[in-house]
Structures are given as structure tokens and as C-alpha cells.
Design a protein around this nucleic acid. Structure first.
Lengths: 225, 225, 225, 225
DNA sequence: CATGAATGAGCATTCATTCAT
DNA sequence: GATGAATGAATGCTCATTCAT
């Protein structure tokens, strides 16, 4: 590499590029920056008013470019939703998947991971609500793409369970169901905020759920003693 | 009650009456029948095409009355959604609340109630999805009204847990959280159909969840002996 | 018929009714009057600027109703063109078909009919140009419908030729081709106005063409004697 | 001519040069080649989708240069249509004008010329339809320019007639009208394809028309015998 | 009480064209 | 000369809602 080479070139990730979203624009950095602006603005608006109550005009009014330009970076309103959803899922999943787990103890791994995902669910409450609401309107392909990130999250928990079972620390319960249970318990913070938080604190809820999962998973505790 | 009073008066329940939904129409039976027709027709359409892709014109085309008349019985498109949501929640809650439970055994009561609610969630998958999606857009008052029925469902489970704890059959776990867990586990059938049903049957899922809840709730049987 | 009956009821002809152009409007007279207004205004504009350069907004600005109302009487911009084309063709064909012909003499019938159609073609020059231009853009069904009126015109001439041939006054030439020739010669006044009128008068042109057709058609008179 | 002058200078004919079509570009060969590329590509598209349904973007996507460059060689979308129309007319006229005629016999000349133009009209059906449709929208100057080529075609026939009349082979009919008749009869193959071809073959039509014109033109055949 | 007809405001999208580089 | 990117203005059409009758 020469010193003058743009070393961060690889760092530019173009939103929507994964699933081939066609553009006449040549400069990838420009695409990235325009789409990112779009994502930021549209996310807020979709969160505030919902996808269907937000017009493209409304979005673009808050952008640094104009309506016709918008259509140089996305090819439909749905594309914007897709961009937003993908970004949301990525942010959420990334924050979870970066969590450092205790490789020695599945028990502690579960505790850490679940606590982390609860924290994330709490932080991204509205985003998760948006995803629950609007992903259903996606066409096949995009929906699958977005849901694949949900699968990543599920797998993250699944793997911990599988490892726990493999090392004899956890009972032999179906890992998929256990993982789903955990994800749901965390999502409930976003989706059923009232029911979760009206009577106690978030910490209490997380503590209860953690206890529950460990009780279920850990092999006979009485024998541990 | 005057002699001239219509004795069946109580039998007429006017949809939407709970939460003030103003009308200039005097005859309550007319209101009830019009609104019921509306609910029936709109429900199908919202389920098929979604709320936002269904136009008021489209709805009214299938009704026995006309567009202008519709606005004598509801005051906006949102009102129709509210009517539909309320009806859906009532149907679902009613079907659960009618379940006959074994008053003697909280264990069997839980089994019955949970199995029943899973059956309901499976039967009303699309309806539950519709509710999850659209209720968030309701204004305060209507949302609370619809969600109060969710509370009824939660309480139904809560009471069983409370009773089980009271009779010493169940461990002393927070009943609200346990109830929420159960409701979520059932809703997952509707909301996360793929994840729940792709690898096993509904029965397996229900069995797993039932086991889980009983394991959690029942006081250590081995020590009882 | 009672005296109070609306005797002219049958007289209301709804433009576009022949080919089923759906409407939510119930009152047929209203449909007729709205569509007629539309036809009158759109015809002028299509004539002035062409179909593609005339926007629905532009048309409706000159109407007594508004954009949304327009779409209660037609279902697309194309429908307007169809209405206009149909009306043009009907006007033209009607004016021709009403011509009283000398039933005794095919020779005089041809003279009268052709002269009349030349007069019409001259009067409706721009309309004929419009039809030539835009009919090609119609979808199958409407095009056939409009072209069927052209066939009526062709048949009008064809019948005269056939009768002339049958009575031995005309030579046995293919009537379809002869009729087409006549129609084309008349249309040329509209389509090739420059070439037709730049060097002589319309009368000269008509006289030339009439002579031509009679020369072609009439069986050798000199030999008859 | 200087020695350095490009000797083939005269060979480069710049499309659109006849009628002032301004350009900032200096190199005439470049203009010619760009415009020719444009003509080739746009012709296909106009033929396939019509002028109004073809966007400048669509055209340029198939070109070797880009949108902004296009506007260095033409100054509007209409210019492209003009270029195309001019080229179409030239191609058609050239193919006719190259026809070798029997200088001795006006009769055979007419036969050959008309047959040839019918062949051309059949070959270029869609092109002729395009011209009929769109030329009317041209502004004065360009229309005249395009129509002057039509005049060339008319004159081609006119001259034969004039010569026939001059040599006493043809009757003294107005040559302009006869020529127009012939051109129209040929164009009918393109414009009234259905009516011309639905009942017989092209050859029959041409034969009929040829007979017709000869019957009209040739001086008293009975006396020839 | 019912309804036929109307409408203002809005929608997503596309266009021909221009200009800074 | 070439081109990537931008943009103002318009397009056809639909919507929820209202009123005169």
C-alpha cells in the first residue's frame, strides 16, 4: 500500500448494497452518505408517525437534497423503509453480537447475553416497535433479508444454550425454543413496556427472567451443593 | 323500568360505545347493527390487505349502506379500525375467559388455560398480527381501551398463578411476570410463526412451554414426597 | 305512456356507454352532461396540443368540475381520449351516413357521397388528423371500437359500389379497394392539406377525384350506345 | 484546399445540419458520428414504444455517451425526433429515388415506380406510421424540412406523369393529383394495413392499384388495337 | 335518516434539462 | 469535450371527508 492510498476505502459500507438496490450514481461514498442521511431522517419520522403516515415529500423536506435526487438513491418509498429496517436490525444485532461472553461458563454467558439484549431492547424500544409493525409489509425478499438478522440474534442465544448442553451444564432442552423465549422476554420490554415496567423496575424484570432461564436450564442445583 | 321500556335493551351492546364515539343517530339498535356490519366487513379487509391499503370506499362498497351513511356511525376511518380492534380483542378474550378451569388444581388450570390460549393464538394468528401492528397508532384513549382487554387476558393467567401460590402448589413467583410470559409464549405462535413452527409442530411447542411453566411454578415435587 | 312520463328519456345517450366505461355516478343524464363537457373541452385541447402534451389537470382547469370529480366520470386519461375519438368518429360518420343518396343512380350516389365526405373531411380536418395520430395508441378493444366506425364509412361507399356493379352500371372492380380509395382521397384533404390545396381549390380536387372514380367505375359508355 | 485539409470533408454529412441545429462542438465528424448513433438508437425506441413513451434517459442509456453529452449534440428531445424523422424520410426517399426507370416507356416507369414504392411502404410500415403520427407536432421549420422530402417523392411520380403526358402516352391529367394518389395508395399499406391486407394479398392490392392508374392514365386503349 | 355527488389536499413517481467540475 | 449529479416542475391518480338534497 502506498502512503497516498485511501486506507479506509474498505470502510465505506453502502446501506442497501447487500440486497442490490440499483442506482445511477457512480460514487459509492456519495451513495453511502445520501442513504445514511435518508436513514437517519426517515427513521425518526417512521418512529414518530409510522411508515404509512409519512410521505416521501415529508422525508425529503428534512433532507439536504430534493425529491428528484432522492429517487437517485432509492427507487421507491418502500426502499427507504427497507433501508431503515435493515439499519435498525444491524444496529441492534451488532450491539448484541459484540458482547464479550465468558467462554468458560455457559451460565455466565447466558446472564451476560440476556442482560445485554434486555438493555438493548430497552434502549431501542421504539425501533423494535417499528420493526414489529412494518416488517410484515415487506415483500418476500426484503422481509427475509431483515428477518435473517433476527435469526442471527436467535442463533446467538441458541449457540450458548447448545454449548451449555454439550458441556453438561444445561439440561437438554430444545435450544431453539429456549433462545426464542429469551429474545421474546427481551422484546417484551419494547412491545409490552407498560406491562413490564408499570409495576417494577427494568432490573427486577431482568432479574426475574434471568432466574427463570437459569432455573430451567441448569442441571439439578441441589446436587451442586 | 317502565312498562314501555324495551326489555331486551341490555342485550343490545353497541360496539364502540364504551369509549365515547359520538353519533347523531338516535336509534341504538340501528347503531349496533350498522357498526356490526362494518366490523364484519372491515375485519376481513384489514386482515386481507392491511388497514392502510384498505380505503373507506372499498369497505363501504361491501356494505348495505353508503359512504355518507358510514360517517353517521363512525367519525373517521380510524374509528373503524378501533371498532375492529375492539371486536377482535373481545372475541379473543371471550374465548379464553369462557374456558372452564379445574378449580381444584392450579396445575391443571394452568395447563388448560395455556393450551387453550395457544389454540386461540393459532386460530387468530392474523388477527393478533393485525392488533400488534395497528394498535400502536391509536390515540391514547382508544389504545387504553383496547389494551384493557389485554389486561383481562393477563389477569386471567395471573389469577391462576396467584391462587396456585396461595394454595402452596406454586412457588412464590411474581404472578404478573409469569402471566406475561405465558401470554407472550402464546402470542409467539402468531407473531413468530416461522420460528415457532418451522422446526416442530404446534403441539411440541405447547408441550415445551407447558413443561417449562410447570417446572418453574411447581414447588419441588421430589421434596414433597 | 302517461302524460307525466319523461318522453325524451330514450334520447339521452351516454358517451362511452357502448364500451362499458364504469362509473360510480348513478344519474345517467349527469354522466352524459359531464362527459359531453369533457369531450368538448378535451377535443379542443387535443387538437391544439396533442394528447400527450395535454395534462388531465389542464383539461380539468377548463371544466366546471374538479380533478377528483373528473375521475368519477372517466377512469383514466386514456378514457378521455377514447371518449373524444369516439365522439369525433361518430360525428363524422353520422354526417356522412345521413346523406340522402339517389337510389336510382349509383353514378349520382357516388358523386353525392364522395362530395359530401370531402366536405366533411375538409370541415373536420384537424379532427381527422387527431384520429390518425392518436388512434394508434389505443389498446386493442377501444381501437377496434373506434375503427369499427371507420368500417361503417368504408361500407357506406362499398355498398354503393356493390349496387352499381350489381345493376351493371359499374365495372366489376373490388368494392373494398374502391371504397378505400375514395375514403383515402377524402382524408387526403385533412392529412395532406398542403399538397391538395396549395395549387388548386378544394372544388378542383373534388372534381378531379370524382371524374377519376367515375371513369374507373362506369362501364364503357361509348360501347353501350 | 490546403494539403492538410481532410479530403473526405464533403463525404461527412452531418444529420440535422440542413436546418440550423446549433452546437458548441467544433469537430464535424464527431457531430456526425454522435448524431448517427443517436438516430440509430432512438429510431428503434420510437418505433417500439412511441416518441412520448421514450425518455431521453432511456435513449442515452443505450448510447456510448452520457446524458449531458447528448445535449451537446442536440438541444432538446424534439431535436432527436427531428433527426430520426429526417433520417427515416431520407432512407425511404433514397430507396425510391434510386429506382431505375425505363426512360422509354412512361407506362413501365409508372409500373416500376409504384411497385417499388409499395414495396418500400410495406417494408417501412412502422416508420411511415411513426412519421404520420409525429411530424404534425413539429414546429414550422422542421416540419417543412421533413415534408420537403415527401415533396421529393411526390415529384418523382409527378415527373413520370408529366413525361407521359408530354409524350402523348398519358392523358392530360393534373400530375400533382395523380402523383398524390399514387403516394397515398402506397402509404395506405402502412396506415390502413388492416383494410388493405385483411381480404387479399399485397400483390393483389398493388395489381389493382397499378391497373387503376394505367386505366386512368393511358390514352384510349381500344384505339391501340 | 339516507344518499348522490363533490372536492381539497395529497400521493409516489418521472421528466427534460442544466451545471460544476 | 465529457460527465456525474442535481433539480424544478409536472404527471396521472386516490383519499378521507362533507354537504345539499
Amino acid at each position: 500500500m502506498s502512503e497516498k492510498a485511501k486506507p479506509a476505502k474498505e470502510a465505506i459500507s453502502i446501506p442497501g448494497d447487500a440486497v442490490s438496490m440499483p442506482t445511477t450514481i457512480k460514487n459509492p461514498e456519495r451513495i453511502a452518505s445520501r442513504r445514511n442521511e435518508l436513514i437517519e431522517i426517515a427513521t425518526t419520522m417512521f418512529l414518530d408517525r409510522g411508515y404509512h403516515n409519512t410521505s416521501v415529500r415529508h422525508i425529503v423536506r428534512a433532507c439536504s437534497f430534493n425529491l428528484a435526487s432522492l429517487y437517485m438513491y432509492v427507487s421507491s418509498k418502500e426502499d427507504i423503509l427497507y433501508l431503515v429496517a435493515q439499519d435498525l436490525m444491524n444496529t441492534i444485532a451488532k450491539e448484541l453480537l459484540e458482547t464479550e461472553l465468558d467462554a468458560e461458563s455457559p451460565e455466565r454467558a447466558i446472564q451476560t447475553a440476556f442482560a445485554q439484549y434486555c438493555r438493548i431492547s430497552n434502549k431501542f424500544r421504539r425501533q423494535i416497535r417499528l420493526l414489529y409493525r412494518e416488517v410484515g409489509f415487506f415483500p418476500e425478499e426484503s422481509r427475509n433479508d431483515v428477518l435473517s438478522t433476527v435469526s442471527d440474534v436467535l442463533e446467538f442465544f441458541e449457540k450458548i444454550v447448545v454449548q451449555g448442553v454439550a458441556t453438561g451444564v444445561f439440561k437438554d432442552l430444545p435450544p431453539k425454543f429456549v433462545a426464542l423465549d429469551m429474545v421474546l422476554a427481551a422484546h417484551a420490554i419494547a412491545i409490552h413496556t407498560r406491562d413490564v415496567l408499570s409495576h417494577t423496575s427494568l432490573d427486577d424484570y431482568v432479574a426475574f427472567q434471568t432466574d427463570k432461564f437459569l432455573t430451567l436450564l441448569l442441571v439439578d442445583e441441589s446436587q451442586d451443593a
